[in-house]
C-alpha cells in the first residue's frame, strides 16, 4: 500500500512552484503545482514528489502520531 505522508513546508520557490518540505526530519523536494495557497509552515500530503493537498495542522499531527504509534517514524 502507498502512504501519503504529512509534510511541513519549510521553504518555497514561487518561480518554479517547488518547495522543500520536512517529513519526519527528512527534507524532500515537492512540486506545489497541484495545490493552491500553500505557505511556509503549512502541512501537505506528499506522494512521489507532489504535494497532493493541504491538510490542517491537527489532522497532520494526528496522522504523524499514528505513524509513530505504528513504529514508522524515526523521531
Amino acid at each position: 500500500m502507498c502512504l501519503a505522508l504529512p509534510a511541513q513546508i519549510i521553504d518555497i520557490d514561487f518561480a518554479t512552484q517547488m518547495a522543500t518540505a520536512s517529513v519526519d526530519g527528512v527534507k524532500v523536494e515537492v512540486s506545489l503545482a497541484l495545490v493552491d495557497d500553500v505557505k511556509v509552515g503549512d502541512y501537505v500530503l506528499v506522494h512521489v514528489g507532489y504535494a497532493l493537498n493541504k491538510i490542517d495542522e491537527d489532522e497532520a499531527l494526528k496522522t504523524l502520531a499514528l505513524f509513530a504509534e505504528a513504529g514508522l517514524m524515526a523521531s
Binding site: M1, C2, L3, A4, L52, E59, K62, T63, F67
Partner: peptide, 10 residues
Amino acid sequence: SIVPLLFSLC
C-alpha cells in the same frame, strides 16, 4: 476513522 488518515492514496 484511522484508515483515511493513513491511506489518502487509493
